[in-house]
Design a protein around this nucleic acid. Structure first.
Lengths: 339, 339
DNA sequence: CTGAAAGCGCTTACAG
DNA sequence: CTGAAAGCGCTTACAG
């Protein structure tokens, strides 16, 4: 099938390419009659503008990039849906790249997006990300950038986050309020800000309620997944710790922990209460249903794109916008894994 | 930051744009000395070709599209990883679009990919997809197309599939071999070929082993998810069916069923054996661990891109390749949910 | 070995 | 209201 071009339409109608172009874009200086004629012909020939040419002329791709640590993750997939929803409404395509929590991959993907000349980039950092020079490069290319969820305080750009410290504080408080005195924390890797913040929220809650913080009650879940939760729980049992509550950094880690506890005949919540984080879709389905913190992923995605859009518009208008940070609310969800 | 162009480099070096372009692409008719000079300057200025211009000239975007019913799904995410792995190696970017099992969305996304002029499209159909005219449009635009997993027999193009009928037969046979006599099937929607094939495999296995096929033992799981599995199991219990085995179309549906059985004090596998399909990553983690069929998602993804690549190459060379269909092997995995 | 020139398919400032 | 012309930044057939 031969591709239809403006030239084609112009020739068929015996008018100029200029007029055809302007007619299709509803310029005011084209007569109604001509517009109607052109549009009819375009429809008849099923004309689709050649985006390659449009991109080159307008220096815009109407495409934005999204880099995320892990796609198969309920929270991130909610974010993705929020972003796509908003982007589609504004005529943007979203290119999704997964960093697999790897700094090296993340760097490559940033480069790829820059070289593809996307109009803007949204990113949630990998756990491994140690420095942010690749993000400075984005700024140098004058590409609007929005960070969300897993951000770095070192990068000057707009951000959408939740108050991880407060949310973790609330989660820990659920355990305290239900009578737990010996609360362990399964934390995430050392680098990510949200893993730090959740740890600090946990610690603060203990201190505010007269419970002694004990660093040996903090277990590491590097990848914050099911397997890590299992391992941490096994270590905790091997350590013969006296524990009556666990606050895990993610629902998956909590689920891994609960499975191990079950295997050892330890009852949740009677012997040990368990609190998760992020409200994974199956958290209400497992037995006992997991108490957790709900993160507004969809909302976060929508807000992230809206912020990016604002910056893309500003750039086009030659305006410089000061970076802004939006903090979204989280919600405590109490189910069966806590008393 | 001003973007660096070939012209820029040419001016700096006092040579022509033509020579710069050829030097960077290692044309044989450029002197070694000039090449070295050009490359050095390009590196110094951090030159990146403008893809918009390259696309327009070469009529290629080095980008392929992928449409998938659901990203947050272990099987599909394996496929995605396989595709991206192979695509990256060949310098292609993959645009992933999620149809959410909706025919309307799928059509829109096909249109979007066509209008973005991707070099090729890979697709796994939505459950709702009733006709395939949107795929014919892809062929009309002469864009290479590969279908995988959820395919339509009506579309003339290359395909990568598993032998769903045989795999379901094998799954059912596991139940039969372990002594089950009254085997229910939780099937998928009526349209998708793989849902039909799995049903047929189930039926055939019963018949081959002297068990009566009974249509009232077949329950519908429209979205083949956890919730559907729960509902089907509840209906089955409400029907007071005598059942000693369930073959569910997906692991998620199987998990939903097992949860309901547990809630009713029914033991798996002692009272009822359960067989899943697709080997979801948590299937080995749940209690009892789920017996299932392993689908080679990663492999499927790699093969899908390779096939697409072959067709893209053929198109460029002006050759027409006959469509081919590859059938991948599956594997029976026996864990604790079957005797 | 080097380069002038045409052209990919659009958009838009400008002239009439 | 219409259109000729320039130009976005490349690639490549062709001439020298």
């Amino acid at each position: 099938m031969k591709e239809v071009t403006l030239k084609q339409i112009a020739e068929n109608l015996g008018i100029s390419v200029t007029t055809v172009s302007k007619a299709l874009k509803n310029y005011t200086d084209v007569s109604k009659k001509t517009k109607a004629l052109v549009k009819e012909e375009a429809k008849k020939l099923n004309y689709k503008p050649n985006v390659f040419a449009v991109n080159l002329r307008t220096k815009e791709s109407k495409t934005v990039g999204l880099i995320i640590p892990e796609v198969v993750h309920h929270f991130f997939s909610s974010v993705i849906n929020g972003i796509i929803e908003e982007a589609e409404r504004k005529g943007y395509l979203v290119i999704i790249l997964q960093s697999n929590e790897s700094y090296e991959l993340e760097k490559k993907q940033v480069d790829l997006l820059i070289s593809k000349r996307v109009d803007g980039i949204m990113i949630s950092l990998a756990n491994d990300t140690v420095d942010t020079s690749h993000l400075l490069e984005v700024k140098e290319h004058d590409i609007p950038l929005v960070m969300f969820d897993k951000i770095s305080k070192l990068v000057q750009c707009s951000k959408i986050i939740i108050n991880d410290r407060q949310a973790a504080y609330n989660a820990t408080k659920v355990l305290i309020d239900s009578g737990c005195k010996k609360i362990a924390h399964f934390r995430g890797a050392l680098l990510p800000q949200n893993s730090i913040d959740r740890f600090l929220g946990y610690k603060k809650a203990l201190e505010d309620h007269g419970l002694q913080y004990d660093s040996s009650m903090v277990y590491m879940c590097e990848r914050v997944d099911y397997e890590d939760g299992r391992k941490a729980a096994e270590k905790l049992l091997a350590d013969k710790k006296e524990v009556d509550g666990i606050f895990a950094i993610t629902d998956m880690a909590a689920l891994g922990a609960m499975t191990v506890l079950k295997e050892h005949g330890i009852k949740v919540p009677n012997d040990i209460s368990v609190m998760g984080f992020s409200n994974w879709f199956l958290s209400q389905a497992i037995t006992p249903a997991l108490s957790t913190i709900d993160q507004p992923g969809y909302e976060m995605g929508r807000k992230a794109f809206k912020l990016l859009r604002k910056e893309m518009k500003a750039k086009k208008a030659g305006v410089v916008l000061p970076p802004q940070t939006k903090v979204l609310d989280t919600q405590v969800i109490i189910r069966e894994s806590t008393k």
